[in-house]
């Protein structure tokens, strides 16, 4: 029980520390902005550790963070292999292909009202298909390896990207388009110099949603058939063997990879759409 009380004590102390930090001028500095979430995260871990030890929770229900960390330390080669298979080969190529395809289709739709009426409803339909139904079919089509996982990600990413790009292409103001018209600009010139830049805030909104979907899609698709490695494969088999520490280790990797991907997209967004009111400082 003492572990529990120590944990709660540390939690209260850290809470007080954070309250003091966010009220003090330090929180306005770069370091301070980083410090508050770090202290918060560390507190959660300590409390978690204390709860598990103090209440004697079985590792199958919830392993302590220290146990997960120990498992990560001894399983690095396996974790890396799974990461490479699922994220580097499945999620990221699927993400890029899906976003690229959505971009091309969005331009085609923009040029042709006929396609707009035909393709958007089809896209809507595909987006409504549940991934648990879709994944086994795509595994049948593209085999057990990463290609089928990338295909699932493409399907999942495509529609949210398409909707955002199509909306983004409408985002320029009438006066801005009229100006282009008075200069006698061609369709391509207007697209490149006005409509695409104006669309970027929407595009990045889509990319941020898509980055999360890509991760989910790549992992879940492995539940329906995969080689004997991959994050989704590992999670499903280790759950069966009650190796919950390994499941949590994979979850930790997935969370890190997801945050990194999202962070990267957000960073590029900041650099590309610096002019947008939401990004100005």
């Amino acid at each position: 029980m003492t572990a529990l009380w120590i944990a709660i004590g540390i939690w209260l102390a850290a809470w007080a520390l954070n309250v003091w930090l966010s009220a003090s001028p330090i929180s306005q500095t770069r370091l301070g902005k980083l410090l508050v979430p770090l202290v918060f995260g560390a507190t959660v871990l300590v409390l978690w550790e204390g709860l598990v030890r103090g209440l004697g929770i079985a590792p199958v229900i919830l392993p302590a963070p220290s146990a997960i960390a120990a498992k990560i330390a001894v399983s690095l080669p396996i974790l890396w292999q799974d990461f490479a298979q699922t994220i580097l080969k499945g999620a990221i190529p699927g993400f890029l292909i899906g976003a690229g395809a959505a971009f091309l289709v969005a331009i085609a739709i923009d040029r042709s009202p006929f396609l707009q009426r035909g393709l958007l409803p089809i896209g809507n339909f595909v987006a409504a298909l549940p991934i648990v139904g879709l994944a086994p079919i795509l595994v049948m089509w593209f085999g057990f390896d990463w290609q089928s996982k990338a295909a699932v990600v493409v399907v999942m990413v495509f529609f949210p990207m398409l909707v955002n790009i199509v909306a983004g292409l409408q985002a320029s103001e009438r006066m801005q388009r009229d100006l282009m018209a008075t200069w006698g600009a061609s369709y391509v010139q207007t697209l490149i110099k006005l409509r695409l830049p104006a669309a970027m805030p929407f595009v990045f909104n889509g990319l941020k949603i898509a980055s999360t979907l890509a991760l989910i899609g790549a992992i879940v698709a492995e539940f329906f058939g995969s080689p004997v490695y991959g994050m989704g494969f590992r999670i499903s088999t280790e759950v069966g063997r009650l190796g919950l520490d390994m499941v949590w280790a994979e979850i930790a990797v997935a969370a890190l990879a997801g945050s990194a991907l999202y962070g990267l997209v957000a960073l590029i967004e900041r650099w590309v759409t610096f002019w947008h009111p939401s990004q100005r400082h």
Partner: peptide
């Protein structure tokens, strides 16, 4: 217009923010 005969100034500046 195709021969670029006009310069047009709208009521609002309409500058491209990027």
């Amino acid at each position: 217009r195709r021969r670029r005969a006009y310069g047009y100034v709208f009521q609002a500046a309409g500058l491209y923010p990027w």
